[in-house]
C-alpha cells in the first residue's frame, strides 16, 4: 500500500520541525483570516452589504425562480448527456471497427467535434443552420451542440477504457467460441465501463457547465433568471455570487459521485 507522498515527505519530523510547522500553520491561518477580513471589508466599503441588495434572497419566490432556472439547466444537461453517451457508443464502435469504411468517418467525426469549440457549434445551430432551413427550438439549439461535442470526448473515454481491458480476456473469450460482437458486448464493454465511470462523470460536469451558454440561443436557464433578478433588484454582486455558488455546488455534487468510484482516468 503506497503511502501518501505528503506523509513520506514530511512524516517523522523532528520536534523542532514540528514546532516550526505548528507556528507556520498558525501564521498561515492568520494570514487567511486577514485575507477574508480584507474581502469582507472590501464588500462593506463598496456598499455590497446593504440590505436592499440581499433582502430578496429571504423571499421564497426568489429561490423558486432560481430553482426554475436550475431545472432548465438540468433538463438540457440531462438530454445532452444521454445524446453524448449513446452517440459516443456509436462512434466508438465505428472507431474500433476493422472496416476502413466505418473507421475513417468515425475518426473524422470524433476529431472534428473534439477540435471545435462548443460555443462555435452553438452559434452554428443558432445563426447558420436556419439559413439552410433547419430550424430547431431553443432547447435543441443548446442541447444538440453540447451533446455532439461531448459525444466525441465520450467516445475517446470509452476507447481508453476498452484498451485498458486486458487483452487476455478477449483472447480467452474468442477461444471459447464467442463472436466478436458477443465478446465486446458481454466481456469487454461492461468492464471498460467500470473503469471509466469517473471520467464519464467528469464529462457530465462539463455538460452542465456548457449549458450556461443557453442565453446565446435564448434558452431560459439559470444565468438568464439571474439577469432578471439583477435587473429587478439592481443587485449585481450578490446575485452572481449566489449563482456561482449554486453552479459549484451542483457540479461538485456530480463529481463527488465519481470520487467514490476510484481514481480518475485521463
Amino acid at each position: 500500500m503506497s503511502r501518501a507522498l505528503e506523509d513520506v515527505l514530511f512524516g517523522d519530523l523532528t520536534h523542532k520541525a514540528q514546532a516550526i510547522t505548528r507556528v507556520v500553520s498558525v501564521g498561515v491561518a492568520a494570514a487567511l483570516l486577514a485575507l477574508i477580513a480584507a474581502i469582507v471589508y472590501r464588500f462593506q466599503d463598496a456598499g455590497q452589504f446593504a440590505g436592499r441588495l440581499w433582502e430578496f434572497f429571504a423571499w421564497e419566490t426568489t429561490w423558486v425562480f432560481l430553482g426554475k432556472g436550475l431545472l432548465g439547466t438540468l433538463a438540457s444537461a440531462a438530454a445532452a448527456a444521454v445524446i453524448a453517451l449513446v452517440l459516443g457508443l456509436v462512434l466508438l464502435v465505428g472507431r474500433l471497427s476493422r472496416l476502413r469504411i466505418a473507421r475513417w468517418p468515425a475518426v473524422a467525426v470524433i476529431e472534428f467535434l473534439r477540435g471545435v469549440p462548443t460555443l462555435l457549434l452553438i452559434y452554428v445551430c443558432f445563426l447558420v443552420l436556419p439559413s439552410v432551413g433547419i430550424k430547431l427550438s431553443a432547447y435543441w439549439m443548446l442541447t444538440l451542440p453540447v451533446g455532439l461535442s461531448t459525444a466525441a470526448v465520450v467516445a475517446e473515454v470509452y476507447r481508453a477504457g476498452v484498451l485498458a481491458v486486458p487483452r487476455g480476456q478477449t483472447d480467452a473469450a474468442r477461444a471459447l467460441g464467442l463472436s466478436k460482437a458477443q465478446v465486446f458486448a458481454s466481456i469487454v464493454f461492461p468492464q471498460a465501463f467500470r473503469y471509466i465511470v469517473p471520467a464519464l462523470v467528469a464529462q457530465l460536469v462539463i455538460v452542465v457547465k456548457d449549458t450556461t451558454f443557453g442565453y446565446v440561443v435564448t434558452y431560459g436557464e439559470l444565468m438568464q433568471n439571474a439577469k432578471v433578478l439583477i435587473a429587478n433588484y439592481r443587485s449585481l454582486v450578490p446575485v452572481y455570487l449566489v449563482v456561482a455558488v449554486l453552479y459549484c455546488l451542483v457540479n461538485y455534487a456530480i463529481s463527488r459521485a465519481s470520487h467514490r468510484l476510484g481514481r480518475p482516468v485521463y
Binding site: R42, V205, T212, L236, Y240, A244, C248, N251
Partner: peptide
C-alpha cells in the same frame, strides 16, 4: 481547486467583468 474546477467559465468571466467593478 474545487471551486475553479466546477464553476462554469462563462459565469466566472461574467463575474469578473460585470460584478467585480462593483467591488471597485
Amino acid at each position: 481547486v474545487e471551486v475553479f474546477r466546477n464553476i462554469p467559465s462563462v459565469a466566472l468571466l461574467i463575474f469578473i467583468v460585470f460584478a467585480l467593478p462593483d467591488l471597485n
